[in-house]
């Protein structure tokens, strides 16, 4: 179920503007990889290129190689829709579908896959996904209520439940806690720890303590200046990055002497 992601000399463009340059990265299955770095350094752009959400923006494109367990994601004849069904994503701001109930939100992806399942199997899927996202006990009595009525932290966990309901190979998280309070953040971080037994997780975060708490590996992205492309400075085990990084730029950033 969980698969490895491998990028080789990956260049990411917005039109003619090179946003991220020369990313070489290997993300192992069943690990949590955190991507850190200053704003605008391209970590979110790189994350969105993994499930081909990057190209939703007109003119956006990618050069180089990006593979999922050896299979080229940008190969000829690869349908981005299929890629997104394998690689789930959780966004910065919780975005449950406001017109759907909690129940419908969880099975939204299942419906897309056109898997016709019985009522019982669907009920089980909803319960399993919501339990997986640590949300079941809080919402089990109001599954037919709109998802937008939940608190921010609950909405974000609902989005995680929605993403894992389709059993993706990889789960991408784009600053999933930046709109949440500390207690909700803690709930999500605990959840990430549990999820990594089943999924490959890549998380972008601005919060270095969070990266240190949740991740096994950390990649540091930076940018030379505005208008220059962002690039991956180094990637290593999280404790190495935070204690004895190889690059001076990384050390300056993680120790707060950035600039």
């Amino acid at each position: 179920m969980s698969k490895a992601v491998h990028a080789k000399d990956l260049n990411i463009y917005y039109g003619s503007f090179l946003a991220v340059e020369g990313v070489n990265i290997e993300i192992k299955p069943k690990t949590v990889t955190a991507l850190i770095g200053p704003s605008g350094c391209g970590k979110s752009t790189f994350l969105r290129s993994i499930n081909r959400m990057h190209e939703v923006i007109p003119g956006a494109r990618v050069e180089g190689s990006l593979t999922l367990d050896g299979k080229e994601l940008y190969g000829a004849g690869v349908d981005p829709v299929g890629v997104r069904r394998q690689i789930g994503m959780v966004f910065q701001r919780p975005n449950p579908f406001p017109t759907m109930s909690i129940y419908e939100n969880v099975i939204a992806g299942q419906k897309l896959n056109n898997k016709r399942a019985g009522k019982k199997a669907t009920d089980e899927l909803v319960e399993r996904s919501l339990r997986g996202a640590n949300l079941w006990s809080e919402v089990k009595d109001r599954l037919d209520k709109p998802g937008s009525g939940l608190s921010g932290g609950q909405q974000q966990r609902l989005c995680i439940a929605r993403a894992i309901a389709v059993q993706p190979d990889v789960l991408l998280m784009d600053e999933p806690c930046s709109a949440l309070d500390p207690i909700s953040t803690l709930a999500i971080e605990d959840l990430i720890n549990e999820l990594k037994t089943d999924y490959t997780i890549v998380i972008v975060t601005h919060n270095m303590q969070q990266a240190a708490r949740v991740s096994d590996f950390t990649g540091f992205f930076t940018i030379e200046g505005t208008g220059k492309p962002g690039h991956l400075v180094e990637m290593d085990e999280t404790k190495t990055i935070f204690s004895q990084p190889k690059q001076k730029a990384t050390e300056d950033y993680v120790s707060g002497r950035f600039g």
Binding site: F97, P98, L112, R162, V166
Partner: peptide, 14 residues
């Protein structure tokens, strides 16, 4: 909202 469109696309919606 872009957010909702992206939510659907990220789930693998055409």
């Amino acid at each position: 909202p872009k957010l909702h469109e992206e939510a659907a696309l990220a789930l693998g919606a055409t």
